[in-house]
Amino acid sequence: MTQLALIIDLNVCVGCSACVTSCKEWNTSGLAGPMTDRNPYDADPTGTFFNRVQTFEVGAYPHTETVHFPKSCLHCEEPPCVPVCPTGASYKRPEDGIVLVDYDKCIGCKYCSWACPYGAREIDEQQKVMKKCTLCVDRIYDESLPERERKPSCVLACPTNARLFGDVHDPESEVSVLIREEGGYQLMPEWGTKPANHYLPRRKTRLRIHDDELVRVDNPLKKEAPRPRPALDEPSLDDVTSW
């Protein structure tokens, strides 16, 4: 069984928000749109986004790590948001594990959003239906797109390639390998929601220098010392003999 998902590599995410607006741009005119904004040019602008990038500071100065943290629906394998929906508008597709909302059925009761521990769902305040990341289901199967572009908009946008897309149930997929080998993890594992999206942690590269690496024979300073050259007028054989 297929479970499509995103992998987010916190090791390279610089928090640029490309994934935020490319998602908005794709989806507002797409299947899941419009993605309404309220007070677009007024005080406290606010709107529907399927993906946001947050910033956390870890630790205290000067040992602070700044973590940029993108988050969209995690397409949980045991999605608590689905069974609670009274209308069946929220559902998980058996064929690929994508969790979707059928806007035609949704009554805007918001109950599913209460049932999502991750805050991944947002009501459209104008249309009054629940919205969320669709994994760009209207791109990834679109045969009119070239193969390489059949990926979510945010994945294609991401300049650091911090977002990877694939089937986490296929052990050979790029994403599965990364999860296995780079310590991929799930958010809030304590709730057994089994998020399909995984995050890759920060990894550090360090350099250790041994003392003896600093002093080596090829040290160029050695070339700078004047060559051992006695002064011309120092006594030599020339002074005492002739052959």
Binding site: F49, F56, V58, R202
Partner: peptide, 15 residues
């Protein structure tokens, strides 16, 4: 966020 450190503070939430 999956980071094991005692001190974690959010400084931006994206909106």
């Amino acid at each position: 966020i999956g980071v094991r450190h005692a001190q974690i503070r959010q400084t931006a939430q994206g909106a």
